[in-house]
Nucleic acid binder design. Sequence first.
DNA 1: AGATGCAAATGATATGATCTTTGGGTGGAA
DNA 2: TTCCACCCAAAGATCATATCATTTGCATCT
Lengths: 254, 254
Amino acid sequence: MEPSSPEVAAAPALPVESGLHARVLEHLGTAICGGELAPGSVLNIDELVDRYAVSRSVVREVLRVLASIGFIEARRRVGVMIRPASAWNVFDPQVIRWRLASAGRMAQLRSITELRTAVEPHAAFLAASRIGRDEASDLVGLAAKMWAAGEAGDEERFLHLDIEFHRRVLLASGNEMFVRLQDLVAEVLTGRHKHHLMPHHPHEQALQMHADVAQAIQRRDGERARQAMVQLMEQAFDEMKSLWEQTAPPHRSA
Amino acid sequence: MEPSSPEVAAAPALPVESGLHARVLEHLGTAICGGELAPGSVLNIDELVDRYAVSRSVVREVLRVLASIGFIEARRRVGVMIRPASAWNVFDPQVIRWRLASAGRMAQLRSITELRTAVEPHAAFLAASRIGRDEASDLVGLAAKMWAAGEAGDEERFLHLDIEFHRRVLLASGNEMFVRLQDLVAEVLTGRHKHHLMPHHPHEQALQMHADVAQAIQRRDGERARQAMVQLMEQAFDEMKSLWEQTAPPHRSA
DNA sequence: AGATGCAAATGATATGATCTTTGGGTGGAA
DNA sequence: TTCCACCCAAAGATCATATCATTTGCATCT
């Protein structure tokens, strides 16, 4: 086994969270994200106790969590009211997971892609001045492996390397908030893959740009790293755009 | 009352949330953010029941919420373990509030400022293509009021206008995730103000740049809007930098 | 019409019991 | 001695029930 080589970390793969609390939370969260429970509609605790055949404790704990992410608001004498999407904590990983599994999936992908477009170039810029020697070497190595996988047409491997590459850039940015976006990026890339948006062989340009980003970061050239990442984002954005233009209608109000 | 003029919206000012749940949550959240409860240390429910003199219902509901933001992990036969900061949902508004009130305040301000630097320029770019006619007019008007307040040396009013300006740009970006960052921006600006980082009279340049951003957005010139916002961010970043260089030591590991 | 007060509805909190999981100890086998 | 299967008590998870507190609709009073 390679000692400290830039290998692909296996996805954590959360263990399905059994337990009544998790089950009810999952069900309600999905229902709200999916619009099955429209904003403004009202539930009450006893009703939920019956519907899910669990105790009040479980229901109340779930409701507290839902309230903390802005999904609901409990009011005495009224019940539990579903709040509009504008109140949701759209950065909560759970919310993102639920939305990616719902009908609003394309809207979510679009939001995240725009966020990436804003954040990743700056992350690359910061990484150039904060990354350690070894990490920089690994990054360059990772870009090389991506090139190899791309040439070989190994889409699966390319995807994992791609995720790992962006993950490491965010990590090297040294900003805790950027770091937390790595899961979102992984989701977007995986989503893109699942919809066969990955061109059969990744664009030659994309491969080169990953290499450029890595090299610029290693050379501590923040501006060049940013520029290269911007180009990467533009390409990724175009691919995404074709995705949601084919799936979703135009898009919302604007 | 002015019909639809770009007036400053009064801050919502959350109503202090009384109730046992809120009190205990607040206390524990603050303690964890403040490092009084170190990662790895273990609590147990009955202990908390005693310490806060509340029922288990309340404690359990609080723990569920804390678990959902990654602060703790409950394990049978062990107790409730405090998780390391790397597991926290650093985008959760509550977490941000707690951290801004803790010793890690400067680190939090730094993270958010970097995030702003990444996001706001892109938000301005997107706003240029998505903003409505009236909103654009309001934005320009707001920049004009900022100029007036700056000239008059009315720091208080300038702060509110500044917050409102950035809020509207994020809103006009049409990206739900960007919109959710408005509270963070408000926190940063307020924090800067409280530490007397606002130069007595705002820099002439800053005033001009706000006007540039507004105008570029109205003219639907995304690139120019982005550029102007980048300059604004650079200046804001410099001000912040002097703030945390005077308060915090160097900064962490890197 | 408007103020006032009562009472039902519903969430908030308290309490005690039982179920389930699991870390650690124990004893026997290799 | 070392290791592993097994057992038990500790602590969270869930349940059931009771009481408290607040809000709101409505009837009543002025």
